[in-house]
Amino acid sequence: MDRAELEREIEQLHGSSFGWALSCCGRNRDDAEEVLQDVYVKILDGKARFDGRSSLKTWLFAVIRRTAAGQARRRFVREVLTAKWARNDEAPITPEAAAQDSQRSTTLLAAVQRLAKRQREVLELVFYHDLTIEEAAEAMQVSIGSARVHYHRGKKQLLAQLNGRLSP
């Protein structure tokens, strides 16, 4: 795949990639943008290379997940060093953004946030990004068996939490 073709395909996945970056960054928009930009720079610099062993989407999602994890680790160290963790520095949700989100999405997000990290990841990859469990396992870099277990347990918990709370 040449550079122009890769760019075109990545551009098509941009919205979805941003959604996944948001998910990997706890829905913090600034962090998600930073992660996605880092991912694109890695690709442009050749530090992340698509070798065609999986679909472009699962490869890209795996890079986003790894980059977000690395950035979260660096942020944690920085915050510990500056004792920032003692304060509540979560990025505020702007009124505009909150107004744009429907009640249904807010309820869904709140329920998803209560799940364990792996369960949340596999459910978002399957339901939000339309990946199969096998592709989700690849993006999460876990075995298919493990992804299946997280998927079933997570879905059961999510459905129990949402039962009757999601109005159509």
């Binding site: 979805s16 941003f18 959604g19 948001l22 744009q100 989100d101 429907s102 249904r104 999405s105 869904l108 997000l109 978002e124 339901f127 939000y128 990004h129 879905k155 999510l158 459905l159 949402l162 999601l166 159509p168």
Partner: peptide
């Protein structure tokens, strides 16, 4: 569940 996630995806 898929519908609810699709709505969230569209917004984000």
């Amino acid at each position: 569940l898929r519908d609810a996630f699709a709505e969230l995806r569209a917004q984000e």
